[in-house]
């Protein structure tokens, strides 16, 4: 592993100013991603996963705005230097070169991610020619090769198909092809398997893993499916209400979770092995309204280990709880030792 991360998000803040008030969708998120690593970003709906990723690409829709922090991307020619994506003008040529060129996106909804009135081939070759000065003929060849690489049968025929003529799985493959067609170093996969059936899901995950290893890509994998996280990633970032709760190597997160929120999440996964007749535990309460975020640690109203007059005052600072393993929780603030709160 390189000494320096390929992408480093530091204290990122992205707010939406609405008529009703300001929604702090992402409120101080930091994480690093190294070359060839799959980083899972997990959390409930509305926790700011997608907003974080859109911020990285600088395609946050209005009224969303990045109000603070840095998104550092390692320069291709000099690994010691970084570009701060936050400082680039939103629609300038530099960021557009990076979008789709160095950082590509597999969008959330495969059904609607393609235009229904343009062929798949047209939309993929467009992505090629935005980043490489190739002729239409060469672009066609690259497109067919990439469709092959994502395991699409009869790519010449699919080239002239429309997205709605393809099955869910094929459509997802076409989207992956469009994302990797310019050989990006970072791939953002925003819930790439939520809209497809379980069998196809497994194939798509296998394909992504294969492509990642072949091309030594970094993948930022966004999902709320902990099973997928366990299967795909090496490093996990757990988010709740716009903040990172805990981040660490995948084994530590699953076998030695520190933050009460991570534990609660893991406890609420149904298991095929356990055949107890006990009700599946859930996290008490519900996610607070975004206008009405709790002070202090955002999880404290639902936390079973809440420390009164501590957790509800200021947000907890970053605390190292293991190798590469960090939790944002007052339970570990005083002692860095692994302490079982129970």
């Amino acid at each position: 592993m390189d000494k320096k991360p390929v992408l480093s998000v530091r204290d990122l803040k992205a707010y939406f100013s609405l008529d009703e008030g300001i929604v702090k969708s992402v409120d101080g998120v930091s994480f690093d991603a190294w070359k060839g690593q799959v980083v899972g970003v997990v959390g409930e709906s509305g926790c700011g996963k997608s907003v974080t990723m859109k911020s990285v690409l600088r395609i946050l829709e209005k009224p969303g705005k990045i109000v603070g922090g840095e998104i550092l991307l390692q320069k291709e020619d000099n690994p010691n230097e970084y570009i701060d994506l936050v400082k680039l003008p939103e629609n300038g040529p530099e960021i557009r070169d990076i979008r789709g060129g160095r950082i590509a996106l597999i969008p959330q909804e495969p059904m609607a991610a393609f235009s229904p009135v343009h062929t798949i081939g047209d939309q993929i070759t467009e992505a090629i020619r935005l980043h490489r000065p190739v002729s239409k003929r060469e672009a066609y060849k690259i497109c067919i090769d990439t469709l092959h690489a994502v395991g699409m049968s009869m790519p010449e025929k699919r080239f002239n198909s429309y997205s709605w003529q393809l099955s869910g799985g094929l459509r997802q493959r076409a989207i992956i092809a469009m994302a990797i067609v310019s050989n990006p170093s970072i791939l953002i996969a925003d819930e790439p398997t939520t809209a497809i059936d379980v069998t196809t899901q497994a194939q798509i995950l296998k394909l992504l893993k294969k492509l990642q290893q072949e091309r030594d890509m970094t993948i930022l994998f966004i999902t709320h499916d902990l099973g997928v996280i366990a299967q795909m990633t090496q490093y996990v970032v757990v988010m709740y209400l716009g903040r990172v709760m805990e981040k660490g190597p995948v084994d530590d997160i699953f076998h030695n979770p520190k933050h009460p929120y991570t534990r609660a999440l893991l406890d609420s996964i149904p298991s095929a092995q356990k055949t107890t007749k006990v009700k599946l535990p859930t996290i008490a309460g519900s996610i607070p309204h975004p206008f009405n975020k709790p002070s202090g640690c955002p999880f404290h109203p639902r936390c079973t280990k809440m420390i009164p007059n501590v957790c509800n005052i200021d947000p907890p600072a970053e605390t190292v709880v293991g190798e590469d393993h960090v939790a944002y929780c007052f339970l570990y603030q005083n002692t860095k030792e692994v302490k079982d709160a129970a």
């Binding site: 690409l57 343009h118 980043h131 989207i175």
Partner: peptide, 23 residues
């Protein structure tokens, strides 16, 4: 959502609007 796809590809806003949603 295809607008997000187009932006993520690196298209400029103008050519994106003219090619997809206008059509």
């Amino acid at each position: 959502p295809y607008m997000v796809t187009g932006r993520a590809k690196g298209m400029s806003e103008w050519s994106l609007v003219m090619k997809y949603p206008v059509r």
